[in-house]
């Protein structure tokens, strides 16, 4: 994670705004973006590559809709993992196929002792619980305590949007 990255220059910003809703589904998508912005295709490709290099773009990929694909149960599993083992174990948990997000976060003692967060998806709560047991087995004695928080309501959901300023 880059913490001191330079903000985007105006041209990068226009490219972000032109692509944040998605890439055009045409044979030459970068040429199409370039034409919209008055740039060359090579400029768009070079700037996208540079943004990927700097970590501004994490990846260019599909965003699956878990719910539509049958993954209707999801739980935020949380784990109290020994600090000296969390990087190694976090990477192993993040690599499991049913884990979509996996983060090391600070504890908030005394109310909150968990430092590893892993979002688990399944077709039912029973399936999510079985996956939680798999995670538990991998963490073994490095994990002191754990819990899972199921979402009961989506209260708000908007994508990340750069303001047009």
């Amino acid at each position: 994670m880059t913490l001191d990255a330079a903000p985007l220059d105006p041209t990068d910003r226009r490219i972000v705004q032109a692509t944040q809703a998605g890439l055009p589904l045409v044979p030459e998508p970068y040429a199409k973006i370039a034409a919209t912005l008055g740039l060359s295709e090579a400029q768009v490709i070079a700037r996208l590559a540079a943004m990927q290099q700097r970590g501004v773009i994490r990846r260019i990929a599909v965003a699956p809709n878990h719910y539509a694909l049958g993954m209707t149960a999801n739980g935020m599993s949380v784990w109290d993992v020994a600090d000296d083992r969390i990087s190694d174990l976090g990477a192993r948990i993040g690599a499991l196929p049913f884990v979509t997000h996996c983060y090391w976060r600070p504890r908030a003692l005394p109310q909150w002792s968990y430092n590893l967060f892993a979002m688990l998806h399944g077709e039912s709560r029973a399936e999510v619980e079985a996956k939680r047991a798999e995670v538990s087995a991998i963490l073994g004695d490095a994990c002191r305590d754990h819990d899972i928080l199921y979402s009961t309501r989506i209260l708000k959901k908007t994508g990340l949007r750069l303001r047009d300023d």
Partner: peptide, 24 residues
């Protein structure tokens, strides 16, 4: 196929994922 997956809602989008922290 990507257009269809998007139209039927199997994917929500296809494109760059941006990192807010790296954008400042």
């Amino acid at each position: 196929r990507l257009a269809r997956l998007r139209d039927i809602g199997a994917i929500t989008r296809f494109g760059p994922f941006f990192d807010a922290a790296a954008m400042g």
